[in-house]
Amino acid sequence: MMSLIFLLLFIAMWCAYRNHLSTSYLFFGVSVIVGLYWFHHHATDSLSILL
């Protein structure tokens, strides 16, 4: 899943480099949404630590 975020960011940077700014913004926005979802998934996951 983490590699998907980096791939989306790479595509966004590549599109910005090629002057396709609207496509770049789209990929950047999608990568932010996926990143926030992934953070929420890990932040709310319970840890099974027995002390």
Rank of each mutant, 00 (worst) to 15 (best):
S3H: 04
W14R: 04
L26A: 11
L7H: 03
I11Q: 08
T44K: 07
A16R: 11
H42W: 14
L36G: 13
G35R: 02
I5Q: 01
F27L: 08
W38F: 14
S48E: 15
R18D: 07
L4T: 02
G29S: 15
S24E: 02
L9S: 07
I49A: 12
D45N: 12
L7Q: 05
A43Q: 07
L26M: 11
M1H: 03
G35Q: 11
S48A: 14
F39E: 06
W38A: 08
M13F: 09
A12F: 00
L4F: 08
L4R: 05
G35Y: 09
I49H: 12
T44F: 11
V32M: 13
L9M: 10
N19M: 10
S22I: 15
L8M: 10
L36F: 04
G29F: 00
W14C: 07
A12S: 14
F39T: 14
Y37H: 05
Y25G: 12
A16N: 08
T44A: 02
H20F: 06
D45L: 08
S48I: 15
Y17M: 05
W14D: 05
L21K: 15
L50A: 10
S31M: 08
F10D: 09
L26W: 05
M13D: 15
H20W: 06
L26G: 05
N19Q: 14
F10V: 06
I49N: 11
V32Q: 14
Y17K: 09
H20E: 13
G29A: 08
L8A: 03
H42C: 09
H42G: 06
M13V: 12
M13L: 12
F10C: 10
S24F: 03
G29T: 04
L4C: 02
V30H: 04
G29I: 02
Y37W: 07
L50W: 04
W38T: 11
A12G: 11
G35D: 03
S31Y: 03
G29Y: 00
M1Q: 03
H40K: 13
F6A: 05
L36E: 06
L21G: 13
R18P: 00
I49K: 12
H20N: 13
W38S: 05
H40Q: 13
S22H: 15
S24G: 13
L50Q: 09
F10P: 01
T44Y: 10
F39R: 10
I5N: 00
I33D: 01
S22K: 15
S24D: 04
S31C: 04
H42Q: 13
I5K: 02
S48W: 15
L26N: 05
Y37Q: 07
S46I: 11
M2F: 14
L50F: 06
W14M: 07
C15N: 12
L47T: 08
H40S: 15
R18E: 07
I5Y: 01
L36N: 09
F6R: 10
L26D: 01
F28H: 08
S46A: 13
I33T: 08
S46T: 13
H42D: 12
L26F: 10
L9E: 11
V34H: 02
H42A: 11
S3D: 06
L36S: 07
